[in-house]
């Protein structure tokens, strides 16, 4: 069971196909699998559908795959901050399915847990509910949403051991956990691969059973909105 690969290109070898559904972790630019996205760009894979909360910015994150027109469809909750995305969407080149953020997270979690559908109150009475099954439970109306079963999951973690146990750092965990679980294959990029036994088994955020391939690399970790306060304000 060798899970460690030399780089992102090797880790994606034999995994990418045109038209596949990829679940990607990250929130904004925080905790995105930037190395794997670069490698997908280099691979030239086409007509990809991404289930990802956001679509990156023009030159970082999924945005780089929009520039090369490798993305056919996005399933996202928020796609601001990306001019090329808007251009392609408004010209009809790019499909967009808006999911409420929590519905998107739960769709991934459900897919990973073998649950094909679930009922939620989120979106009842809005455009999101149109065409979906409605059902009453104890007098309250809910809509059915479907689990996401992705062909591939790409995620970014802080540390991994060679068995694929992952730990994340601060709010960079976000969608990485549910995305990782809902892929037929999950490839994780991490900042550091540590020796087996050096991660506390009680502190693993995602057990290695969910992770098939791992790479270690240097991350840019770009900040989208740098907000600070002055020392004298404190």
């Amino acid at each position: 069971m060798k899970k460690i690969y030399a780089n992102a290109t090797e880790a994606l070898d034999g995994v990418l196909t045109d038209g596949m559904l990829i679940a990607a972790g990250g929130f904004g630019l925080c905790g995105i699998p930037e190395l794997l996205l670069d490698a997908i760009k280099e691979s030239g894979a086409q007509d990809l559908t991404f289930a990802s909360n956001n679509a990156g910015v023009d030159d970082f994150g999924i945005g780089i795959l929009l520039q090369t027109k490798q993305v056919k469809k996005m399933i996202s909750s928020y796609v601001g901050e990306n001019a090329e995305f808007m251009r392609q969407y408004l010209s009809g080149e790019l499909e967009l399915e808006f999911n409420p953020q929590g519905t998107l997270a739960e769709r991934m979690r459900a897919g990973g847990a073998g649950i094909p559908g679930f009922y939620t109150k989120t979106g009842v009475g809005t455009v999101i509910a149109e065409g979906k099954e409605h059902k009453e439970f104890k007098g309250e109306t809910y809509i059915m949403e479907e689990g996401i079963f992705a062909d591939l999951a790409i995620v970014k973690a802080w540390k991994a051991d060679d068995t694929g146990n992952l730990i994340f750092r601060k709010t960079a965990r976000n969608f990485n956990v549910p995305a990782a679980t809902c892929g037929k294959i999950c490839v994780a990029e991490v900042e550091e691969i540590v020796p087996r036994g050096s991660l506390d088994p009680d502190a693993i955020h995602l057990p290695g059973i969910y992770v098939n391939r791992i790479i270690q690399g240097d991350h840019e970790k770009r900040i989208e909105q740098r907000t600070t306060r002055k020392k004298e304000d404190a």
Binding site: C30, R169, T171, Q225, R226, T227, T228, R229, K231
Partner: peptide, 20 residues
């Protein structure tokens, strides 16, 4: 609250994508 200048952490943001 927002971090002091120079102490921003790209792994620590709020839902508005601001460093916190």
């Amino acid at each position: 609250p927002f971090p002091f200048e120079g102490e921003e952490d790209p792994d620590l943001i709020n839902a508005g994508k601001q460093t916190i």
